[in-house]
């Protein structure tokens, strides 16, 4: 075989990074994705965590509590929309087929989107943290801030997998609606908008069914709030969700392409 046509691993790595960079630029230049993803969690935080926050009536710190649960809410979007809607579009518009015909390094397509989603998650959460530290007067040990950021960046992954699964099943027209139908009710049912203890008993009982609930619990625990501190268990459940949906999507991608 022609050795000149082998690619050095440095060049292959550069191809991955290039793919990720343009995936990020592309979503940054798509206002209908970037603006709601980045701004909605912060807007909610300013509204409910700062402006409508009349002090701690329930015996806990509202500003810190909402920082944790809105972080979980905020990182769902880049995963669900960045994968669900984008993959559905690219599948339908033939871009996925073209990419499959090109010598793109293996996994670059998904890896680029994953890095993009993690970067968006980091931006969303750092913005929330900035608001919490300034306007919300939240005070935590440095380790908690860092742990929350890590939770957010890794916490986007199960939603990438769910998004990917949706993207391989639903057409470009239907994908945004399907994603919203999952995103908004799941956030509510997982106690990310209103703490679970204020929801009906039945909804509290089924909350562990939703991946967002587990992410929310981790976020609360690592930021010193009233999470149940069973972080390892929640992380294992999230990893399970990620693998299951990724495997389902992968099977579908290989078959239908």
């Amino acid at each position: 075989m022609d050795t000149a046509l082998r690619m050095s691993s440095a060049r292959a790595a550069r191809a991955w990074l290039t793919e990720a960079k343009y995936e990020f630029l592309r979503l940054l230049r798509t206002p209908s994705f970037a603006l709601p993803t980045i701004l909605f969690p912060s807007m909610f935080y300013i509204l409910f965590g700062v402006l409508l926050n009349g002090g701690p009536p329930h015996g806990y710190d509202v500003a810190a509590h909402l920082l944790a649960s809105y972080s979980a809410f905020g990182v769902m979007a880049p995963g669900l929309f960045g994968f669900g809607v984008v993959v559905a579009m690219e599948r339908e518009h033939g871009l996925l087929t073209l990419k499959r015909a090109l010598p793109m390094p293996p996994g670059a397509y998904l890896l680029a989107k994953m890095l993009m989603a993690m970067l968006f998650a980091a931006i969303v959460v750092m913005l929330l943290m900035l608001l919490a530290a300034t306007l919300g007067h939240v005070r935590m040990p440095p380790a908690n801030w860092i742990a929350l950021l890590i939770t957010a960046v890794l916490g986007v992954l199960p939603f990438c997998a769910i998004g990917l699964f949706i993207g391989t099943r639903v057409g470009a027209q239907g994908a945004p609606a399907v994603v919203n139908l999952i995103y908004l009710p799941m956030s509510f049912l997982s106690g990310l908008w209103i703490p679970l203890q204020f929801l009906p008993k039945f909804l509290q009982q089924i909350a562990p069914l939703w991946p967002a609930y587990h992410l929310g619990q981790i976020a609360l625990s690592v930021s010193g709030q009233d999470g149940d501190h069973r972080t390892a268990l929640h992380a294992a459940v999230l990893a399970g969700f990620s693998l299951a949906f990724f495997a389902l999507a992968q099977r579908r991608l290989r078959r239908a392409g």
Binding site: L5, Y22, R29, H93, L102, P103
Partner: peptide, 22 residues
Amino acid sequence: DAMLQAVLRVDELVRLTSSYYP
């Protein structure tokens, strides 16, 4: 009938595709 990424510039599309080749 491949629809490329509409918001990328032409030079970016060429650079991206070029990155796949040795």
